[in-house]
Computed example of a mutant assay.
Amino acid sequence: MDNLERLGMGQVLVADPMSIWYLTGYWNVPYERFYALYLARDAKARTTQATLFCNRLFPDASQTGARVVTFDDTEDPVALVAEATRHGEPLGVDKVLAARWLLPLMDARVASEFHLGSPAVDDARSIKDARELDLMRAASATNDQAMAWLRSQLHEGVTEHEIASGLLAEYRRLGAQDHSFTPIVSFGANAADPHHEPDGTRLRAGDVVLFDVGCKRDSYCSDMTRTFFFGAEPSERDREVYETVRRANEAAEAIVAPGVTFAEIDLTARRIIEDAGYGSYFTHRLGHQIGLEDHEPGDVSSTHDEPVRPGQCFSIEPGIYLPGEMGVRIEDLVIVTENGCEVMNAYPKQLTVIE
């Protein structure tokens, strides 16, 4: 709520199920039904009123500590929200609140103004406490182990889809519960597509192999990319591409520290790739924040001028993508510490040829 007050608002309607879970410990997937947590700050008393709006079909929410307002499919939840909000004050609304609910709330004038309130919760989620950091480390350690399994699956003729489809069982064997995103397995020219979806492409000698994978363990996400060469020594040009990406990755990680901006971190990696002549082939931001979700607000890009802060977790993932030929990406997750950063991934990054 302190974050909300800095935004000039004393009340917010949170509709993101993950943010509601973060704030209350209550998990629910509402599908098309209305679901929201209303928070209102009493500035004088320094207290917060919490009201959770739940369809009667949802799991019991009585243990959240919030006042629970229930309704069924024939009732109008907008009228119930209108009874709770302070109509004469601005209301922060969540970025995922559907227009089918937001527009009727605006028509009902449940607040004097409507503003984006998500940054208040996003900022709180951005700074991980000690327990969260330990869970992030555990998820990344599991991902390191899974990368060793992925490498062991490589043999001539195996398809991208065959490897990707077996990864979930390996994650679960290692103690994780799920993927944190759909795994990317790319052979040869497919690696030039940063978000390639695994298909029936078969591995051949001389291919580059790119794995971009992550698991969810105890609710927290991991994300890592490693690139290998299969069956033959890389050409001079391919070796240059790989080493350029590796240098960019390591140089960016080396400058992460409180006070350094996200934009400066992005520029450090981008300049190395540009100086090597591959700037136009680095086609995305350097990274993204991560936690309960794989991609969380606050990217590592040239337009994000905020300084990083201790407890933040984000990816460092430079890449070079040569259309129709090959691509290389190397990605780690880092935690910002009081005087630098901790790289959560221990899997090696030196150029590796798999025979």
Results as ranks from 00 to 15, higher is better:
193 D>Q: 14
277 G>Q: 11
230 F>K: 08
319 G>K: 03
227 T>F: 02
302 S>C: 07
239 R>Q: 14
196 H>L: 00
313 C>M: 13
209 V>K: 06
225 T>G: 15
218 D>S: 14
224 M>D: 00
223 D>Y: 13
255 I>K: 00
315 S>E: 10
255 I>E: 02
192 A>I: 11
293 E>I: 07
223 D>R: 07
216 K>I: 15
267 L>P: 01
209 V>S: 10
191 A>Q: 09
303 T>H: 02
231 G>P: 10
314 F>Q: 06
275 D>R: 09
284 H>G: 01
306 E>D: 13
192 A>G: 11
298 G>R: 07
275 D>P: 04
213 V>R: 00
204 R>C: 12
224 M>H: 04
312 Q>W: 05
229 F>G: 05
273 I>F: 09
227 T>I: 08
207 D>I: 13
235 S>H: 07
255 I>W: 01
203 L>Q: 04
245 V>G: 02
188 G>I: 05
195 H>R: 07
285 R>S: 10
206 G>T: 04
272 I>Y: 05
205 A>I: 13
303 T>P: 00
211 F>V: 03
212 D>Y: 13
220 Y>S: 00
262 F>Y: 15
298 G>I: 07
316 I>F: 04
312 Q>V: 04
193 D>Y: 10
309 R>Q: 13
245 V>I: 03
281 Y>N: 11
308 V>Y: 00
272 I>V: 15
305 D>W: 00
248 A>V: 08
273 I>P: 12
261 T>D: 06
295 H>P: 01
268 T>R: 12
308 V>C: 11
272 I>K: 05
294 D>H: 05
275 D>Q: 13
207 D>M: 15
203 L>G: 07
239 R>L: 10
217 R>S: 14
258 P>K: 06
286 L>H: 04
244 T>M: 05
304 H>K: 10
